[in-house]
């Protein structure tokens, strides 16, 4: 058993396909650039929230926080958004409008949850580490908030659709058994585990504190309204808490972590069960064009 510490996303890569991990992490094969646009947008809203939290005091008025957020967003957009990422100016402008609407809604003075996220934030971009059964995990939490009973960790996303939920938590066990291929939800479970366990090693954690973890989809709902002079965009976000799922499926989640962790440290990269992976993971894989495992089935045809 290795003491190597791994991130939830590395584990999730392996859970998607061991060969993918081999190509991406071990052999470090450089894949052609995927579109950077969503990556850059992620940077923009993450840094906006981070900076707002950093700059905000517990008793700042909502309007001040909101105005600060919009100002920071505009600066971040200019800093990170590149015209090269977009085929047209119109496309870029539309994306800016969508993201801006999401920040606007998140930090809305009249009830935007971002107001309290900013006021109660005790750490942003917080590096956490933990070790269970000799398997080390690490990660960076977007925002840790002090609640009345303890801590609430938030991971900000574009959308939370298709992520781990009460209704889909049972898929974790099916993935473990090789009956289903659910790397995205498995990844959410790994994140939940890493942050909940990791934050307990932080100095601001006190015994007896309740630790919660949520994903927050900033652009969960967007609407597009057409007018004679142009269009209007609005966005709305909400959170999805996975604390309870973690408690309820603790054994399954840690069995998954052990399996993937050991697979990586043991350098076992055969894609198994192949048919399932081939069907689910190959179509969107960056390495599909070079993957001997996939190509050999194609050639046989």
């Amino acid at each position: 058993m290795s003491q190597e510490s791994l991130s939830p996303s590395a584990l999730a890569t392996y859970a998607t396909c061991p060969r993918l991990y081999d190509y991406r992490e071990v052999q470090d094969v450089n894949a052609p650039d995927r579109t950077e646009l969503y990556l850059n947008q992620g940077t923009i809203y993450h840094e906006t929230i981070e900076d707002v939290c950093e700059a905000t005091d517990r008793d700042d008025p909502p309007e001040v926080i909101h105005d600060r957020a919009m100002r920071i967003f505009d600066a971040k957009w200019d800093e990170h958004s590149s015209a090269d990422d977009y085929e047209s100016r119109a496309h870029r402008e539309y994306q800016r409008a969508e993201n801006r609407a999401a920040i606007e809604s998140f930090f809305a003075p009249d009830g935007g949850v971002g107001i309290s996220h900013a006021r109660r934030s005790i750490a942003t971009e917080c590096w956490v580490e933990c070790e269970v059964d000799g398997r080390g995990l690490h990660g960076k939490a977007d925002n840790v908030i002090r609640t009345d009973d303890g801590l609430h960790i938030f991971d900000y996303k574009r959308k939370t659709h298709g992520m781990l939920s009460d209704g889909t938590a049972e898929y974790l066990g099916e993935h473990l058994d090789g009956e289903a291929h659910e790397p995205k939800r498995v990844r959410n479970a790994f994140q939940t585990a890493a942050y909940i366990e990791g934050v307990k090693n932080e100095p601001f954690y006190e015994d007896g504190m309740e630790v919660q973890f949520s994903f927050y989809g900033l652009l969960n709902s967007t609407s597009f309204e057409s007018t004679p002079t142009g269009y209007d965009v609005s966005a709305r976000g909400w959170g999805r808490e996975t604390t309870e799922i973690y408690d309820d499926h603790y054994d399954t989640i840690w069995a998954l972590i052990r399996d993937t962790h050991d697979g990586i440290t043991g350098e076992t990269f055969e894609p198994e069960p192949f048919e399932l992976i081939n069907e689910e993971a190959c179509p969107d894989c960056d390495y599909r064009e070079m993957c001997a495992d996939r190509l050999s089935t194609e050639v046989r045809r």
Partner: peptide
């Protein structure tokens, strides 16, 4: 077509290219 995308008058057509 890619070159003239900005000539479209976006009102009901979403500007998303992809």
């Amino acid at each position: 077509v890619l070159d003239v995308l900005d000539d479209i008058e976006y009102r009901s057509v979403k500007p998303n290219v992809y």
